[in-house]
Each structure stands twice: as C-alpha cells, then as structure tokens.
Design a protein around this nucleic acid. Structure first.
Length: 829
RNA sequence: GGGCAAGUGGUGGAAUGGUUUACACGAAGGUCUUAAAAACCUUUGGCCGUAAGGUCGUGAGGGUUCGACUCCCUCCUUGCCCACCA
C-alpha cells in the first residue's frame, strides 16, 4: 500500500490557491523576509534545474514562514527573448500568443510542485505594464548620460542576424545557436556600466554572504589592474607611443615594443619604409580574422617589423617597433613593451623572430641563476633587480613602486589603473523585446520619447521571415512617427533591448507589481528590499548579478533606493547530472519532472532532490534514490496513521488506559523519545539555517527510525504522539503536501505553514549515562559507560580498572591523561 | 597560463582537531506468504582469524599535535570559471 499522494497533492494545491495562503502581508511591524529564486524563461516545460532551484528556495521560505516572518516569495517570467521569435518564424504563431501559452503550461507545472509563491504578485516582462518601466529607466539613464549611442565593431551572429554582447559570445560562438560570430560595424546603444566600475568592485567586500567564487568571478570580470603608462618617443619624429604595463619592474629589460595591427599610427609611421608593403599586408590579413581566431592561436604569435624605432625612456636605448596579432587594440593602450625574459608571450615571440633578450630580475634562490641564452621559458616570478641602473639589488616588488614613482617624477611615465569591464551593449535587432524609446528627427536629432507617451508598445503585427534584420523596421505605423518636439515626420528606433535589461530590476517590481507611477513604490521597497536570500544558477554569477547591482546603484543615485546592494545572501545551486553529464536534450539524458511527479508525487521529488546532495554542489540523478525517498514518505505516512488510530482508540478502552499508565512510569523510554525529539529539532533547524538540507532530512530519517524502534511499547505515550507531530512539522518545508494532510488529520484547522516552528530545550538533550571512548597513545582500545556528571577522579578510577586496557598499558608509567569531557580519554604511556 | 572548488566504502554522501564512513542506495541473509511484491528485522571498508581480537585504511609524501579527513608545506588528479588583459 502506498500513500495516496496524487489525491493529497491536488487537494492541498487547490486549498493553498483558494485560501491565498502564501500572500505576503502588506508592510507591517512584523519582520520581513524576502526569498527570491531566479525567474525562468518560459520555455513551457520545467526541467530538473528549475526543480532543484525552486525547491531549495521553497523549503527555505516555508521554514521562514513557520518562524513567524512576513515572507515575500514571488515568481514571474522573463518572457522576452529569441525563442518566441524563432517559434513565430517556424510555426507561424505570434510571439505574444506563443509566450502566453508557454507561461500557462509552465505555471501549471510549477503549481504541481507545490511551491509557496504569492501568485498575486506574478509579473511577466513582456507585458507593457512591465516593459513600460524598462523604457522609463532607459530614459532616466539617457538623461544621466549613461545610455548612449556609438558606432562600434560588434559581434554579429549571421544565423540570428543580430548583434551579441561580448558576454554572449562563448568561445567565438553565439551562446544560443553556436554559430561562428563575425565582426561588423553598427550604430549601437550602450549603457555606461563602466561609470560604476569602482563601486561595483569595492562593494563586493560588503557581500559577506555570497559564495567566494562568485565574488572572484565578478572581480575578475571587472578586472582592475594597476600599473604604469610609459611614454616611448619615436626615434625619427616627434610622436609618443604610450604603453601600459603592470610589470614596470621589468622596464630595463624591454628590448622592443609591439603595436596592435589596428593601431592608428601604424600607417603613418611605416609610410615610405621598405617594410611598408609587408606591414600593410599583415594588417589586412589580421583584420579579416575574427577576434576568436586570433585569440585561439595560443602558441604561434605572428608579427612583422615596422622598420621604425623608438627610445626606451629609462635608459635611452633605441629599440625596434613591431606589430603583432597577440596585442589587442581594446586593452590598455593597444601597445606593449616586450620583455622576453620575464613574459612568456614576449619570450615566444622573441624566439620566433630572433629578437634580443636581457635578464633584469634574478630569482632569489642562490642555487639557480638565469641566463638569457639558456632560458627555455620566461621567468615571471619574483627576485632581485639586475641590469636596472640605480635600482639594482632591490627586491622587484619594491622596485616596482620605486621605479613608478621615479618615472612620474621625471615625467616619462604615469601611474595608472586599467579595467577590463566594458560598457554594456544593449541594442538588439530583434522584435521580441522592449522597444528603445527614442525618435530620430531630421531637424532635432536624437529625441527621447516623452514620459507621458510611454509605453512605446510593440506592434502586434510584424512580418516574421527570419531574414534581413528586425521585423519592427518593416512595420511602417511603428517606424514613421512625428517628432515629439517639432512634429515633423521622423523615424522611430527599431532596436529593442537585451533581455538582461528586463531582469536587472525585476526583484524591485515584485515589491509593488501594480504600481503605476514609477517602476516601484519607494515605500514598499523600503520595507521589502533588499532580497534576503537569492537562489539561482552559477551561470548567472557574472552578467545578471553584475547588471542588477549596477541598476541598484543607479536607482540609489536617483534617490529611489537607500541601499547599495540588492541581494544580501546568495546561494548558487549545483547542476543536476545524469550518468555524470549535464542533463540536456542533445545528450538525450533528460529526466522529465512531470513524469516523476506522476509516478511518486511532488513531495517525493522535492525530498529526493534535497536529500541527494548539498544544494551548492552538483548532484547525480538516481532512480534508486528517488525510490528511497518515496519509501521514506510512505514510512512516515504509516507511522502517523498508526499514531492517529491509536489516539482514537485510547480514548475508549479502559484496558489500554491501564497499559498507558504502566508505560508512563517508564521514565527511560520517555526520556529517550523526548531527547530524540529535541535533538531532531536542533539538528534540522541548524541544518536549514546553513542550507544543509541533506543532513536535515537525514536526521528526520533517524527520528522516524527511532519512533519505529519504540513503537510497539511506546505508542501509548504522550511523548510518542509529540514525536510524530514534531516530525511532520519539521518535515513540512521539504514535503509540504503530505505533512499538511497529516497535520489536518491530527485535527488542526489552519495550514501547517502557520504553525510555529518548534524550539528545542537544552535540558532534554542531556543524557544520564554516556559512553566515553578510551584511547591508549591515540588508538581506540576500549569504551566505558559512565554517568554524565562523573568527576575526573572517579573517571580515572573507572578507566584504570578496565581490564581491556591492561595489555596496552602493561607496567609503563602514564605520562599524560587527557580527558575530553563527555567524549574521550587518552592515556599516553 | 591565472582563479576557485573538490579528492572519504560497491554508490550518493556524513563527520566544532577526538569512536572514519551518520543517513540513504545497492548487496547478502532472515520473518511473513502457496509464491511473488510490499513491509519488517539482521549483516555489510580491506586484510588475517572459527571466534575473541588484531591490523591497515579519508589522492601521495612530509610536518604540527597526546590525537589529523579536518591545521601547515610539497606534489598528483578531477571539475568549474576566466584568459594572448600587457
């Protein structure tokens, strides 16, 4: 007999829905708690990744509810994006209709999992009452000079016929369709996220409850590097080439400089030189290659000599100027000084082209001296300066500072900071996104759409051919509009926003999803924000989180928020694997949540996915494992059923009352149960607090095992009944439906989520008799059972009388007698 | 190349410097049954031993300690992220 999970789950899902059990209460004096999981793209079906992500968040927010917090736990849909448009092209179904359908299906699946969402706060980013505020925010950024347009070489996906952000190019391929990305010049909208780079970096230190690796990834992405810009003067004309380096301590070893092939000065300086033809040919060749091909050549470094020379300002040496593909125009100054002895890339290039080398740092280890002739690779470590004029003999780290200061003083260099972070390209030549609220007028120029004209609605009818750029540009009623200023016929911007824009502030909208004056109600965000616990995948560790942080800081600058960071605590859950690989359609190893629910119920799925591994590490899907979880829930069901049965019976039978009375005198059984109950409360509570759901569930299994063990003799005891009740309360965040059912069968009227989370009492954890381990020289030799409050002297007496220890101690003198209270004794002889 | 994790039974995984392997899966045996399933009970790291017991054992090697999966050093392996970033 298995418990009727289907009936139970449907019953309670309906009850929760009808009674709006999970509605966040309005602002109150009660302490709030905001739990958020990353909202999904509505593909129509949920996958195990969603299940894991949302089960973690759900268990935690149910726990917070029961602790008496006013919990905000919302859900919505990140509904703009390319798949809807692709469906429109392929299936001739309009993106809005297709998306609505998908949302509907997906919502049904989410409801089947029994998640405790406040559905009254549901948002969907493709609705105009949401994207209107995207446009509003864009206009604010435009006014602040943070949204701007510029011609830029952009990544172009020929298959999607759209531009991609650098972040969307993965190994030179489009992150969605894996087509090789090309380079193309286009006028594009950018957000000046670089204006916030210092704050984005510095405030990372405030994020104490974020995983270290996410902090590290963000920090690397922002990529602050401190160094010196050094001015190299051309030998034969009055021009300066600035070079950026983080290793100014190696400047005396610079034996040539290298420019990026696109470097603007190159054409000018090679003019008339014998090398001119060859240089131009090389430049042309590199220009044709995409960034990817260039960066994938990790060994061979191609380059040519320009025929020009410049002066190393620290020692007035004349050194040659080369151009090479391994130098990038976008980073630093587009030019580098090359120190082959102390930089591996320069080393390889110098070997290839037989360029001179000079050692300027010797490793401090005496046994080992470098020589330029015998080196097989660059030495990039620390050491002592040599061949460095007045800096000889200094440790290189110190020389780094001294040289920089000296160069600034004599005016041949400047201490500088460079950043890796670029401005954020948000334009998309796509239909299914937020229209950028800009109008181009022949007379007035680039004019923002007035606030009162928002939203700029997406036209419902657009031709979807999949070719030739954005469908929007083909809708004339949309494109041709009067200029807001002079009313003359103008052209509307047809680019839409990247969907990352939508998800950069949705957590704020959840606080007041219907608010009509601004993107969010400042009073409401004051109460609910920041998000206390955010749960999501590691794949969003950089972009989404960085953009959300950027938006939050922007709102703060507008005076709309009074905090710096949107997400207090962050949990990045691990992936769900099958046979050691990520579940994916192409691998054909997908396990569909829906069929698992049909077979075992949502409670079993939830319980299993939390039990199989700690939340932040990857977990291996196992069909056997899920059967185990199902078995456990059935065991709990029978246990509680029997206990309830017994409750009814014992009210009637006199004889049983007598048995009960006898049992009540059995203090040791009662204490044992009591102790187990309180131990379970302690462990489950502590484990949930630190997101160790797997061990929380393990201690509940132990509680069940214990109750089964004493069932025959103890079922009559109040303590036994208390045990079953505590069990279902503690289990309810993980398996809410079955617990709600059992809770009600115990005669409770309110939802279990409104019951109080139990507290443990220290006094019940105490034991009268404890087992202590006895070691001799650190090796386990015996055990002893003693009263918990035994004195040290008494304990020593006990231990020394132990026959088992005699052969190990023999007659050797005891050097040390270590007692770890209530745990262990170690005798050192 | 850089950064961050992680290496524990047949498997997923537990262990504030103190009994290595909680809990679960699998396996073996048993109870119930005409039988099977379900359920329940017992056993389950390796080696030696009939047993009591002994001995080895947390990727490898050192160190600190009465005592190390845990702390320190060196190395190996795997995973993830970043990367001609000057």
């Amino acid at each position: 007999m298995v418990y009727p999970f289907k009936k139970i789950e449907e019953k309670w899902q309906k009850y929760w829905w009808e009674h709006k059990v999970f509605s966040a209460k309005p602002e109150s004096s009660q302490k709030k708690y905001y739990v958020l999981e990353m909202f999904p793209y509505p593909s129509g079906k949920i996958h195990m990744g969603h299940v894991r992500n949302y089960t973690i968040g759900d268990a935690y927010s149910r726990y917070k509810w029961m602790q008496g917090f006013n919990v905000l736990h919302p859900m919505g849909f990140d509904a703009f994006g390319q798949p809807a448009e692709n469906a429109a092209i392929k299936n001739k179904i309009k993106p809005d209709i297709w998306t609505d359908k998908c949302i509907e299906w997906m919502k049904t699946e989410l409801e089947k999992m029994g998640f405790s969402y406040d559905w009254e706060r549901e948002i969907s980013t493709c609705e105009s009452n949401y994207y209107k505020w995207n446009q509003w925010i864009f206009l604010k950024m435009f006014e602040a000079g943070l949204a701007y347009k510029k011609e830029a070489q952009v990544n172009w996906c020929p298959a999607c016929e759209t531009t991609l952000a650098n972040e969307e190019v993965v190994d030179g391929e489009c992150w969605r369709c894996y087509t090789q990305v090309e380079q193309k010049d286009l006028e594009q909208w950018f957000l000046k996220i670089t204006a916030y780079k210092e704050r984005l970096l510095e405030d990372l230190t405030q994020l104490k409850d974020w995983p270290e690796r996410v902090i590290a990834m963000q920090s690397n992405w922002i990529g602050k590097s401190e160094g010196v810009e050094i001015y190299f003067r051309l030998k034969d004309r009055d021009k300066i080439i600035p070079v950026f380096t983080t290793r100014v301590d190696t400047i005396f070893g610079a034996t040539y400089i290298v420019l990026a092939p696109e470097y603007p000065l190159v054409r000018e300086i090679v003019q008339g030189k014998p090398q001119e033809k060859e240089v131009l040919k090389f430049m042309h060749k590199v220009a044709k290659e995409s960034k990817t091909i260039r960066s994938s050549q990790d060994v061979k470094k191609e380059g040519v000599f320009t025929g020009c020379y410049c002066i190393n300002p620290v020692n007035n040496e004349t050194i040659p100027i080369w151009i090479a593909d391994y130098v990038l125009m976008e980073y630093g100054t587009g030019a580098i000084m090359a120190v082959p002895t102390h930089d591996q890339r320069d080393f390889l290039f110098a070997k290839e082209h037989k360029l001179p080398m000079r050692i300027v740092i010797q490793p401090s280890a005496v046994s080992y001296q470098l020589s330029a002739e015998s080196m097989t690779e660059a030495y990039e470590g620390d050491g002592t300066q040599v061949n460095s004029a007045q800096f000889d003999g200094l440790p290189n780290q110190e020389a780094k500072i001294r040289i920089a200061e000296w160069m600034e003083k004599v005016g041949i260099g400047k201490i500088q900071t460079h950043w890796r972070l670029r401005d954020w390209l948000i334009s998309r030549q796509r239909y299914w996104g937020t229209p950028i609220p800009i109008i181009y007028c022949q007379k007035c120029g680039t004019i923002p759409v007035p606030y009162e004209d928002l939203p700029v609605e997406l036209p419902k009818d657009a031709p979807f051919t999949g070719k030739g750029g954005s469908p929007l540009s083909k809708v004339s009623e949309f494109v041709n509009v009067p200029c807001p200023e002079c009313k003359s016929l103008s052209r509307r911007e047809t680019d839409t926003m990247a969907t990352f824009f939508d998800s950069s502030w949705y957590f704020l909208r959840f606080c007041s999803p219907q608010f009509a004056k601004e993107p969010f109600d400042r009073q409401e965000t004051k109460y609910w924000m920041p998000v206390d616990q955010y749960v999501g995948g590691i794949e969003h560790a950089i972009l989404h989180l960085l953009y959300s942080r950027f938006f939050t800081k922007f709102f703060k600058d507008l005076g709309m928020l009074d905090f710096n960071e949107p997400f207090q605590k962050l949990l990045t859950q691990g992936m769900v694997l099958k046979d050691g690989e990520v579940m994916s359609k192409s691998r054909g190893n997908i396990v569909d949540p829906d069929s698992t629910i049909k077979k075992y119920g949502a409670d079993t799925l939830r319980l299993y996915i939390l039990f199989a591994a700690p939340p932040e590490v990857e977990m291996e899907w196992s069909e056997r494992g899920i059967e185990g979880a199902f078995r456990f829930l059935n065991r709990v069901w029978r246990l509680v059923e029997d206990s309830i049965e017994n409750e009814k019976e014992r009210k009637l039978s006199e004889q049983e009352k007598r048995i009960k009375t006898t049992m009540e005198k059995d203090e040791s059984t009662r204490n044992k149960i009591k102790r187990k109950i309180h131990l379970s409360i302690k462990e489950v509570t502590d484990d949930i607090e630190s997101f160790k759901f797997n061990t929380a569930i393990a201690s509940l299994m132990e509680l069940v095992n214990e109750l089964y063990r004493v069932k025959d003799t103890a079922i009559w005891l109040d303590e036994y009944e208390e045990g079953t009740k505590v069990l279902i309360v503690l289990l309810s965040p993980f398996a809410p439906h079955v617990c709600e059912e059992m809770w009600q069968r115990w005669g409770n009227k309110e939802s279990i989520i409104h019951s109080k989370w139990p507290k443990y009492e220290e006094r019940f954890l105490q034991e009268e008799l404890i087992t202590m381990v006895i070691q001799v020289n650190g090796k386990l030799r015996s055990k002893v059972q003693v009263p918990a409050d035994i004195t040290e002297d008494k304990l020593k007496e006990y231990v020394l009388a132990d026959e088992k220890l005699k052969p190990w101690i023999k007659n050797q003198p005891i050097k040390n007698f270590i007692i770890v209270p209530k745990k262990l004794i170690n005798i050192v002889v």
